[in-house]
Design a protein around this nucleic acid. Structure first.
Lengths: 206, 206
DNA sequence: GAAATAAAGTGAATAATCCTCACATTTGTG
DNA sequence: CACAAATGTGAGGATTATTCACTTTATTTC
């Protein structure tokens, strides 16, 4: 079970790794074109230029492909989060960082429609919902670590809960924003940034 | 297309209405037992004690059944929302109402696990995600109407965006809370109530 | 560098499951 | 009661995910 997207053979040779990439690329394109439900395994195989059997060599089932793609998006978001949170100096600094995180988060999906399509599909199965929650939890931990030295007197339990919750709410806000038209989405993200800022101020207070 | 869950024959005779109820009940039970993905149409038919053809008499496809169930849950939530928002007198009153709404919202899923299972499944298909957004929008309108007389000077666009966003975030917060263990869920809902309260205060301010 | 082992590749065949449709039965109506 | 409308039925067609027995290619061993 070393393959986190499910358990099948792990590609070790370069040839196999390329093949897996081809499969993922083909799946991504098809999801963007027709939505994840309408994607057929044979289509993925055909577009990737591999026989159907090869798909099942590396992915236990169709959902695993989507899971893998979702995990890659999550990784990118997490990397950006880490980078944005690195070396926070003060409370004021933290507020600016969080603002930047949200703008970047939203921007990622706006500028890469393909990424958005994958992300939207990420709710489409129970395993993915669990993955999403685990992801928020992990991001929450990172967020918590970055902030806790700024609020040494704030009880940890609350700060942890707030971090976890904010990560999940941020995802929800962004998902909503990219699902509506651009103008409204912008307004929603702006409003959410105010909410987040206020929550942080509240954690910093006293 | 009078049937909002899709378009098929609308049951008019009592016999047919009962049948539809039996189908929905059976589907609900199976979703609770195995998750919506694993539910087979033949199983639903068998448990409901009707032939497979009858399912398709009233539901165009499998997703329509889930859609119908989700809509019923949404209706219940909406009714509770309306009731809780009826005749708000003051800003302080509004804060109390919103608190009650969240507690009731969370409580609904805690006390009725079956309802929770349906609700969790509500993300499992694109049409349902759209339904969820439309639902938040409608709830946002109701929320907006209930509050706008309290903040006549606040620009409508922002209040509308905030209402819409809060309804969606509330759903996300509750979904998260019921997905984790009880203790943590309680803490998350509590934190979210603070967030919501602060957002309202901010709208009332100035 | 030949033999042995492991990894990767293959696609026709199988299995799972949704959904249809032509016909039977029941209910409502003049 | 005769006729129309609504409802009920389930074997089977259609689609599509997945398997698996076998071949080919790469890597390791001696």
């Amino acid at each position: 079970m070393t393959n986190p997207a499910g358990s099948r053979r792990q590609p070790t040779q370069a040839r196999a790794r390329e093949r897996v990439e081809r499969i993922l690329t083909a799946a991504t394109e098809l999801i963007a074109e027709t939505g994840s439900d309408a994607v057929r395994m044979t289509e993925v195989a055909e577009r990737a230029g591999v026989p159907i059997g090869s798909l099942y060599q590396y992915f236990p089932d169709k959902a695993a492909i989507l899971r893998m793609l979702a995990m890659r998006v999550m990784e990118r978001v997490r990397d950006a989060l880490k980078q944005n949170l690195d070396g926070i100096g003060s409370a004021a600094d933290a507020l600016a960082r969080v603002d930047a995180i949200m703008i970047g988060y939203y921007g990622l999906f706006l500028t890469e429609p393909v990424t958005r399509d994958i992300w939207s599909a990420t709710q489409s199965d129970k395993a993915l919902q669990e993955l999403d929650i685990a992801d928020s939890r992990e991001n929450g931990r990172i967020f918590f670590s970055a902030l806790k030295h700024l609020v040494p007197r704030r009880e940890h339990a609350r700060l942890q809960a707030a971090s976890f919750l904010l990560m999940q709410l941020s995802g929800a806000a962004v998902r909503l924003a990219i699902a509506v038209d651009r103008e409204e989405g912008d307004r929603l993200v702006e409003e959410y940034r105010l909410i987040m800022r206020r929550e942080l101020e509240s954690l910093f207070d006293k």
